[in-house]
Amino acid sequence: MFNAFLALLRRALRPTAQTRAILRDERSEGNLRYLGATYSSDGNLVIEGQDLGDAVEAAFGYREYEWTWTIARTDLPKLAAALDTSADLMAALESRFEGPAAAGLAAFLQEHRIPYESWSRIGD
C-alpha cells in the first residue's frame, strides 16, 4: 500500500510538458517583436508572430506585420526528431529558438522538411 502511494505521489510531482513557448518578446522605443507557440484545440502546433513599429515601416512601408505557421499534429513527431527531443516539444523550441535565434526557425523548418501552413498580413 505504501509503495502504491509513493508511485502515485511521484506521478503527481512529475513536471508536466509546457503547453506554450515564448520565443521572442522584444520591446524597444518604437518597436515590438513577438513570436510564440501554442497548441490548437485539435493538437496542431501554432506559431504566431507579430512585428510592430519603425523597423517594420522601414522594411515594408507599413507599421504592422503578423503571421502564423501551423504544423499539423501528425507532423509533430518529425519536428520533435529534428529538435532531438522525445519529451517536451515546447521546451525544446524555447531552448533552440529563444531570443535572437528565433530568426532561424523558418529556415530550420524548411531544412528539415517540416510542412506547415502559413498565413501573413502586412498593413496597419
Rank of each mutant, 00 (worst) to 15 (best):
M1F: 07
F2S: 06
A4I: 10
F5W: 13
L6P: 06
L6E: 05
L9C: 05
L9F: 09
L9E: 11
R11W: 14
R11S: 02
A12T: 12
A12C: 13
R14E: 10
A17L: 06
Q18N: 06
T19A: 11
T19N: 12
A21H: 03
I22W: 05
I22M: 09
I22Y: 03
L23M: 10
L23V: 10
D25Q: 04
E26Y: 12
E26H: 14
R27I: 15
R27T: 09
S28W: 07
S28N: 11
E29K: 03
N31M: 06
N31F: 06
R33Q: 07
L35K: 00
A37I: 08
A37T: 03
T38V: 08
S41Q: 04
S41Y: 09
S41T: 11
S41A: 14
D42S: 08
N44I: 05
L45A: 01
I47T: 15
I47D: 02
E48K: 05
E48H: 06
Q50V: 04
Q50W: 10
D51T: 01
L52N: 05
L52T: 10
L52R: 12
V56P: 07
E57M: 15
A58P: 01
A58Y: 15
A59E: 08
G61H: 00
R63S: 14
E64K: 05
E66A: 04
W67G: 00
T68C: 09
T68G: 09
W69Q: 01
I71S: 03
I71R: 04
A72D: 00
A72E: 00
R73M: 05
T74D: 15
D75M: 10
D75K: 07
D75Y: 08
L79S: 02
L79Y: 13
A80R: 14
A81D: 15
D84M: 15
D84N: 09
A87C: 12
D88R: 00
L89V: 00
L89E: 00
A91V: 08
L93C: 02
R96G: 01
R96I: 05
F97G: 00
E98N: 06
E98Y: 13
E98T: 13
G99Q: 14
G99N: 12
P100I: 11
A103S: 10
G104V: 06
G104L: 15
G104F: 07
F108H: 07
E111C: 04
E111T: 14
H112N: 02
R113N: 13
I114V: 15
Y116D: 08
S118T: 14
G123T: 02
D124A: 10
